[in-house]
Design a protein around this nucleic acid. Structure first.
Length: 355
DNA sequence: AAAACGGGGTT
DNA sequence: AACCCAGTTTT
């Protein structure tokens, strides 16, 4: 008798041949270009990556070009994609490729996986898609598909659960092209096996799927509950003058390093300091702030942040490290800075009145 | 407004 | 194994 894995591999491959998504990065076998697409996709929806992937690669067509990127061009190329640490790790990794592997993606996946920002998933995705290497690439999609297929009772992210998922994928990789199996799992998870609204009738594996037999696909995968984000607030100060705004280059070691930030309590939150102490200590007794121009929300993993923006009048030349920046220049602004600047631009509506 | 989602690093 | 990362999309 045929094993389930063998049957599933065949069904997946047949389905993928007919129904695979048409994605720009599927037109290449260049591991560098595939790597960039995978890192972008880790934090950004497919539609956005469609728009940004080609432009990023035009700017940084090779590891060598990426390794040589300065902060401004690097961050600008990633602007709006968030989690800027990842593009820094990408550059660091490229620098190591240049120094240690002549600017090439190494033959041995282990060498690749030792680079910053490259874990088991990215390693598996790049080597299977580029070289058809039989490595699993288990992202959230594959995790969900296999958890449902097996009606996996163990938590998917604990060792016992992970091992079973990986073993099943490995079995399929022995039966069909890893390049096809891994991509098919991604597409299945993005389509018929979507998280909240699975469409089992469209799924090529539905005849094999245990969760479908139980009638409760959305119970899988079993994942730990997330804690509710903590509500916190912070304050930013907006000083403007003739098309300029007051800002500073965020130093290394702080959140959003290398980008332009506004004065104020900023990130991280919760902050220890009071706004009054900050104002006094940074700009001296002559500086004044007005009532809030408004507020906006900025949520990240653990915090739901309300950011208040106050007008600032410094009545003196700006103290280091602050200086005037053009509001229209192409600067690497953090998302928080961008939102705050909008709030200070009357032509866009004030979203909330704050207070 | 709340809930869901994602992969890697660090300790 | 547990905790952290500094955001967007879906419900």
């Amino acid at each position: 008798m045929k094993s389930t894995a063998k049957i599933c591999a065949r069904l997946l491959a047949d389905w993928f041949e007919r129904r695979q998504r048409d994605l720009p990065w599927r037109g290449t076998l260049d591991p560098y270009r595939i790597w960039i697409s995978e890192v972008m996709l880790q934090q950004t929806r497919v539609q956005v990556v469609r728009e940004r992937w080609g432009a990023f690669l035009s700017r940084f067509p090779s590891p060598k070009a990426l390794a040589a990127a300065d902060d401004d061009s690097l961050l600008s190329a990633w602007e709006g994609l968030g989690y800027y640490r990842r593009v820094r790790q990408l550059r660091e990794a490229a620098q190591r490729l240049v120094r240690e592997h002549r600017g090439q993606i190494p033959k041995d996946p282990k060498d690749f996986a030792s680079l910053p920002g490259v874990g088991p998933y990215t390693k598996g995705a790049v080597y299977s898609l580029a070289f058809d290497c039989p490595l699993p690439a288990i992202d959230g999609n594959a995790e969900r598909v296999i958890s449902r297929l097996l009606a996996l009772k163990e938590p998917a992210r604990k060792k016992t659960g992970r091992v079973q998922i990986e073993a099943f994928v490995q079995s399929m990789l022995r039966e069909q092209s890893p390049r096809i199996i891994n991509q098919a799992l991604m597409d299945l998870g993005a389509g018929p096996c979507a998280p909240a609204t699975p469409e089992c009738p469209l799924c090529p594996l539905h005849s094999q799927c245990k969760a479908r037999q139980e009638g409760t696909p959305t119970l899988y995968p079993k994942l730990p509950p997330r804690p509710r984000p903590q509500a916190v607030e912070t304050h930013l100060l907006l000083a403007t003058k003739e098309g300029l705004f007051l800002g500073r280059r965020i130093p290394q070691g702080e959140i959003n390093q290398g980008q332009i930030g506004l004065p104020g309590l900023g990130l991280p939150v919760p902050s220890e300091q009071s706004l009054e102490d900050y104002l006094q200590g940074t700009f001296g007794p002559k500086a004044e702030i007005g009532p809030s121009l408004g507020s906006f929300g900025h949520s990240i993993t653990r915090y739901k942040i309300t950011v208040y923006v106050h007008p600032l009048n410094i009545n003196a030349p700006p103290p280091a490290p602050f200086s005037w920046f053009s509001r229209t220049a192409k600067l690497p602004l953090s998302t928080v800075t961008r939102k705050a600047l909008r709030l200070g631009t009357p032509l866009s509506q004030a979203k909330e009145s704050g207070d």
